[in-house]
Design a protein around this nucleic acid. Sequence first.
RNA 1: GGGUGUUUAGCUCAGUUGGGAGAGCGACGGCCUUACAAGCCGUAGGUCGCAGGUUCGACCCCUGCAACACCCACCA
Length: 926
Amino acid sequence: MESSFDPHAIEQRLYDEWERAGYFAPTGNGAPYSIVIPPPNVTGSLHMGHAFQHTLMDALIRYHRMKGDRTLWQMGTDHAGIATQMLVERQLNAEGKNRYEIGRDAFTERVWQWKAQSGDNISRQMRRMGSSLDWSRDRFTMDEGFSRAVLEVFVRLHEEGLIYRGQRLVNWDPALRTVISDLEVENTEEQGKLWHFRYPLLDGATTADGKDYLVVATTRPETMLGDTAVAVHPDDDRYRHLVGKRVRLPLAGRDLPIIADDYVDPEFGTGCVKITPAHDFNDHEVGARHGLPLINIFEPDATVNGNAPAAYRGLDRFEARKRVVDDLDAQGLLDQVQDHKLMVPRGDRSGTVIEPLLTDQWFVRIQPLAEPAIAAVENGDIEFVPKQYENVYFAWMRNIQDWAISRQQWWGHQIPAWYDEGGRIYVGISEDEVRRKYGLGDVTLTRDPDVLDTWFSSALWTFGTLGWPEQTEELDLYHPTDVLVTGHDIIFFWVARMIMMTLKFTGEVPFRKVYIHGLVRDAEGQKMSKTKGNGLDPLDLVDGIGLDALVAKRTDNLTQPQMAPRIEKQTRKDFPDGIPSYGADALRFTFCALATTGRDVRFDLNRIEGYRNFCNKLWNAARFVLMNCAEQASFDTGQPVTLGLADRWILSRAHEMVSASSRAVDTYRFDLYAAAVYDFAWHEYCDWYLELTKPLLWNEEADPALLRGTRQTLLRVLELLLRAAHPIMPFITEAVWREVAPLTGNRQPTIMLQPFPEAAELAADPEADAAIDWLKGVVVGLRNIRGEAGIKPGQNIDVLLQGGGDRDRTLAVVTEDLLKRLARIDSVRWLADAEEAPANALALVGELKVMVPLAGLIDLDAERARLGKEIARREQELERLAGKLGNPNFVDKAPEAVVAKERQKQAEAQAALATLKDQLASIDSA
RNA sequence: GGGUGUUUAGCUCAGUUGGGAGAGCGACGGCCUUACAAGCCGUAGGUCGCAGGUUCGACCCCUGCAACACCCACCA
């Protein structure tokens, strides 16, 4: 083995081997365990969020596979309708073309080409991260079988009246020229204006203060061209007398009724509201209540249409706004303009302002689907982890609105509906089927050109990937899936809709648990995004990247090229030397360690560096073990074996580590799992156990049985540690395991299919724990003296022991060799209790005095300072204890055991303090 | 406007039925000790956001407040 760990040398090769050997597919007859991957969009490459999420899933999958479960990790990708279409359109635009020129068929063909390319890149990234997906069952939301499932669902829902087509006011994206759902609208607070316009009163009416016009306030002046009323509050004394009268709508020259409606807030603006039922959701409701006409003034691209006065036709909505304001101003009808903060709805993909627009669309009647989906979480069939996300889910589900599922796009599942020349609608899985079903003769049918919302198909993911609508064996075996691992950002988009659709079509929940993880942010806590240029490609952390290449990557193909210089500057500041190669295991370990209960994680290079070092530590521990055990492997020889204290101790600690690890994985505490492995490996196995074995291994006269015991334990515990760590760090554990396992008699080809360690394989050993704790106490005490007193590390010392009890004497004998080696001691001598010790530096281990004679070694002042600190510490503790025990309430009311424990501590602290003070006095007199 | 989460060492974060405040990184001092300098040894850092309350005892439970983050919501 090389003297330091090089991830490149092993990772790629091992993954290829695993894949060729077919280890990723479910095997055996164990209990089924399955997870479907949230299908990544085929929009390019995976980001840190994917890598994070995949790491957690892979850890679960590998853990359960090792537990012997028949484990399936279902692979697949999502066609991601709008996102992918936009991306390919941008590519077209860059070539000076657009999709209308090349036509629908050529365009979708082009998207399929892109999909192939993007999918390859994604799967390459996943393989590099070590994700053990079952590639043989790879699915795509638009593959043949899945498309069949989508049509089936659409047709069945339509037959049941749960899908309908209707004209409604919807969220319209004028840039993409499609409807989008409520969820795809992001409301952002922006600085705008509130314009006050005068609408002249007709028929000689006047306001209470004698004016012959009403003042209406609006943030959207251009929509006044579609006004069909002015509304006031019914109880508003200022305007009550005007209800039923009329105003003249300027510019358009129409007359509008003045109506009364509770919707109006008399406190806001002037208390008069212009009503535009075709371009505002609230106004739409008011209009419906009052039977107002709807006047749509916009084309699909939000230019003004023929329903508006000729002067405004063809203008973009924002130009029209300016023109309307100018014209009203010119006519003296602009009363005033105020600055005003308002919530602006924007499309989450296009970023343009969303326009409420009247259109014909397909909708899912959601209420009947929502009710069972709510019940499934209420009754615990599905549990969210962490629990509080259930409230988020409930809040949305209990107030859910019908779902607009049609999209005026080309890339996606085309809606299976046909129209005859009379506009009648026929729904079926194909035109042939429709003709048969409805007995249509020689009529011309035209298919609805729209496609379905991407999330309509993703909602079928758990059962669609397993073969539905066929009743396949896989469906029977792996559905419901065990857990869904996903981010909180798609609970509504995806999780809720999966629950609804899956219950509807399979009668089962899609998954029993939903593990919600946080979002990956940069070191400053900012969301990673291409626009901000603060994103990281997980593979750049695995393989490393030079600074110039990183800058180029971050500034390439920006939607806002003007950001490039700022991004470059920041990148050069944050990564002056580029990014070193850390390897996939270090990245995975970092993700696990950062995965605390559902909160967002800040990704910090310092963290991954630490875990890269941990990989190296593990690697070198293995080198040590192999160097010392490879030639003398002694399993299966039948020769006597004795376990020493240290051996028993590390086995006991391993027992604790294994049970902590299992407990952590079973409760989705990946951070605690990582910590259990890390602490055991580094601070117990390496820091203490390996050191404790050296005196024995290097002693040529050591008892052979004891040597065998130690060698076997070194190997056995290392082998077990590798298995325990494998779900987090698959590559290094596999590479090392293949060296180590044969020495333990295990000749299996891979760690992947070994059993995860069971706590029951090992036992707690309190006696060994106590002995090694004692030993550590003495060693640490001596190290402290060395460090503080400035004794050279290479300088051996003599040690005197005094006081303590029988136990101390026994342990000192048992551990003498270990002690001498670990603390670099030449000689140990016991002093009788009454014997006067020479001038010395003192450490206390319980009642035992551990002394290092000064003998010119030790600086008296330094020793005084050290003792002074120790005395202060004990005094402080005593003060606290005295306060507590002096309080009669505590002594009376606290449990006896607690009081006894405090008394015990007090006695110990008093004894220790007395000893330390004596010691200080003796130094002063020396 | 409603809701959720967060606030612990310089930084990033743990803290498992309320009973002696922890880790990693960083800082400081000392070590190339034959697995590992991506290492080893030692040291110093905290009024646990603020104010009350419950309790013998509160980082932990309750109330209020503040700051930050996020989600939802139709106020022109």
